[in-house]
Simulated assay, not measured.
Amino acid sequence: MNDTQSVNATSSNDTMLVTKQVHEIEQFETFGGDIIKNVRVGWESYGELNDDKSNVILITHYFTGTSHAAGKYHPDDEEPGYWDSIIGPNKAIDTNRFFVISVDSLVNINAYDENVITTGPASINPDTGKPYGLSFPVVTMRDFVNVQKSVLASLGINKLYAVAGPSMGSMQAIEWASAYPDMVPRLISVIGTVKADGWTTATLEQWTTPIRLDKNWRGGAYYDQPPENFPNEGLAAALALVTQSALAPNFFNDVNAQLLAQADGKPDLYDIQQSPVIVQWLMERARGRTTSMDANHLLYLVRANQLFLTGMNDDIEQGLANIKAKTLFIPATQDQLLMPYHLERARDMLKANDKEVELVYLEGDLGHLEGLSGIAIHSETIRAFLAD
């Protein structure tokens, strides 16, 4: 195992500048017992690791996210990392105090993003010299956690100050607290869940259907084709479903009204080949994301989410009972994807086991995405949670 480059972000004009690091694992054994050779993942960090390595906060990312949780790679980047509003000097997760680290997941959907390093179906299988495709083993939240644990071990870190993440990152954070309770004294779970229930599992499966129906998918064996012949339309339709699932009705209705007000003319919907303006908007956004994402990777991420059960041992009560961490749950009231009941039930189950747990809500019309764009509203809550 090895890592390259320095371990902390620098600051320029109040913007943290960060460089992607590389972590390699010669042989990684999955939770399901398979071996993946030559695993490579990217990671980045903010702040400085203290002498006794006791100030580490791990950030675990969401479904379409990456390890780019805060800061910028270049001063002229259009946008900083997704939680930049709460990670940085004097912010809720204060990098003057904490060493904050985040890792690209295995099978990261952004397989063709120049700032993402991940091993998955699009990677070359060293045994065949060809992309894995669907021969890549199924991976789980525990595998994501164990890769992160390997990154931490390479830096000599054997305990966290806290772990925090939104959505799929929330699942990883919870799995950390259950799988390695002595390493995790504090847990922040945002817009998350402690298991994939029936409703969630079926919703996630719908994201995979357009890819499987795309003739260019070829049963997952499309990597010998030029990129324009990848299952791009299926991937775009899948991403449109992901986006709609992650937003709330009020947001869509407002966008629709704005589009109609700005349009030179409405599409003729008596022509069956025309699409409403809101659908055109949604699909245009989705198609714009396909160049950096991989369809097979989306399928594997969906399965990792569908398999999630805290503790990964078919016993949610025991999985939650393992947790020793002080816990902060932050669901979003208008979340249509991981609705508040998920974390409300988790809170009740933890309280029944005399665990220390707090729950506060995110309000706002972004629904699930309030956990990314609206998280700063709870800056003081998070700061106070991390204060002791």
Rank of each mutant, 00 (worst) to 15 (best):
D214Q: 05
T201W: 05
I57E: 02
V255K: 13
E24Y: 11
S170R: 01
I157S: 01
T19D: 14
A164I: 15
V184L: 06
Y361Q: 00
N216W: 00
G120A: 07
D77I: 08
D94P: 05
K351P: 07
I93F: 10
N216D: 09
T310Q: 06
D84Q: 00
D335E: 05
Y46M: 07
L239R: 09
V357Q: 03
D264G: 14
T10D: 08
A70T: 10
A304F: 01
T310S: 15
V39R: 07
Y62D: 10
A9Y: 03
L155K: 13
S275C: 05
T203L: 12
F251V: 02
T290P: 04
L309I: 14
L259F: 07
Y222M: 00
G371L: 11
Q306G: 09
P126W: 02
R347C: 08
L134Q: 13
V56D: 06
W199K: 14
S85M: 08
I375R: 04
K159S: 12
V39A: 07
G156M: 07
P121G: 06
L309W: 03
D314E: 15
N38I: 06
M339L: 14
E48D: 14
E26P: 13
S12A: 02
A179N: 05
D51E: 15
D197P: 05
T119V: 12
L282I: 14
V147H: 11
I93E: 09
V145N: 13
F98Q: 04
N2H: 11
V18S: 07
T381C: 03
A153S: 12
I174Q: 12
S373A: 07
A257C: 07
K355A: 01
D76M: 01
H23K: 09
A92E: 11
Q172V: 09
H368E: 09
T201V: 12
D52M: 03
N13E: 15
A153Q: 15
Q274W: 10
A92G: 08
T4P: 01
G371R: 04
E29G: 01
K149G: 03
H297W: 00
G364A: 10
E380N: 13
I174S: 15
E363D: 15
N253V: 10
R186C: 08
V100L: 08
T310H: 06
G71F: 01
G374D: 00
K266D: 03
I35W: 04
H68Q: 13
T290H: 06
E228K: 13
I278N: 11
